[in-house]
């Protein structure tokens, strides 16, 4: 048991990453404000960056830019950092698209609250009209 907790403690970045991931998903699923959902997505994506970067870290390592003057340096793993550059671009794209969708939804419904939208939609559908 002791060993379990000591390993958990040593792996604290992973714990943080997964906790943030859970918070992100919780935000997306439970908040009815559409903007908060988008923020949730960004928290979730951010947590994964932490996980990757932590995976590449070496104790005492420096940033992976080659220093020709010092051959004794340890460098951290450059690959996760490169991957996360890509990851950031992806999350920016997703955020942009969701914000655009929210704009559109606001134009249609006049609100950015998911529950409100649901209410309006069922009301309109009950009246047999189309939303435009």
């Amino acid at each position: 048991m002791g060993e379990f907790w000591s390993r958990i403690l040593q792996n604290y970045p992973y714990v943080f990453a997964l906790a943030l991931f859970a918070i992100g998903i919780y935000t997306i699923l439970t908040h009815s404000n559409l903007f908060k959902k988008v923020i949730g997505i960004n928290i979730m994506e951010g947590s994964i960056y932490i996980l990757f970067i932590a995976a590449g870290n070496v104790r005492g390592g420096v940033a992976p830019i080659l220093d020709m003057t010092d051959t004794t340096l340890t460098y951290v793993h450059p690959l996760p950092q490169a991957l996360m550059l890509t990851g950031i671009v992806v999350s920016v794209s997703v955020t942009a698209l969701s914000l655009a969708l929210i704009m559109k939804l606001y134009r249609f419904y006049g609100t950015v609250d998911a529950k409100e939208i649901m209410r309006i939609r069922t009301e309109v559908r009950a009246n047999g009209a189309r939303i435009s």
Binding site: F4, R7, Q10, N11, Y12, P13, V15, N57, V58, R59
Partner: peptide, 11 residues
């Protein structure tokens, strides 16, 4: 699962 992962920062 995290407790099984390789230790953080070890070379």
């Amino acid at each position: 699962a995290i407790s099984e992962l390789p230790l953080y920062g070890s070379p």
